[in-house]
Design a protein around this nucleic acid. Sequence first.
DNA 1: CCTGAGCGT
Length: 87
Amino acid sequence: MTSIYVGNLPFTATEEEVRDMFAVHGQVDEVRLMTDRETGRARGFGFVKMAADAAQAAIRSLNGKNLGGRDLRVNEAEERKPSASRW
DNA sequence: CCTGAGCGT
């Protein structure tokens, strides 16, 4: 499983839009669009979890894609937090 | 109502 960082999203983008877009390249395990903590509005970025091969295919295909007049930033995400690992 | 660089409870 690979975590994908999706940035530069239009504020009008939703999770199902992103999920559907990524689902074209493979099965989407999870989609999480981050919203602003204070105002509650979309921050314009999120994360997608997919299988490694599907993730790479989606990244190579969707990175730089124009959505809503903005070029998407799609890359492998970093580790969320080194603590609280249920291992 | 509103905005634009960013790696998340």
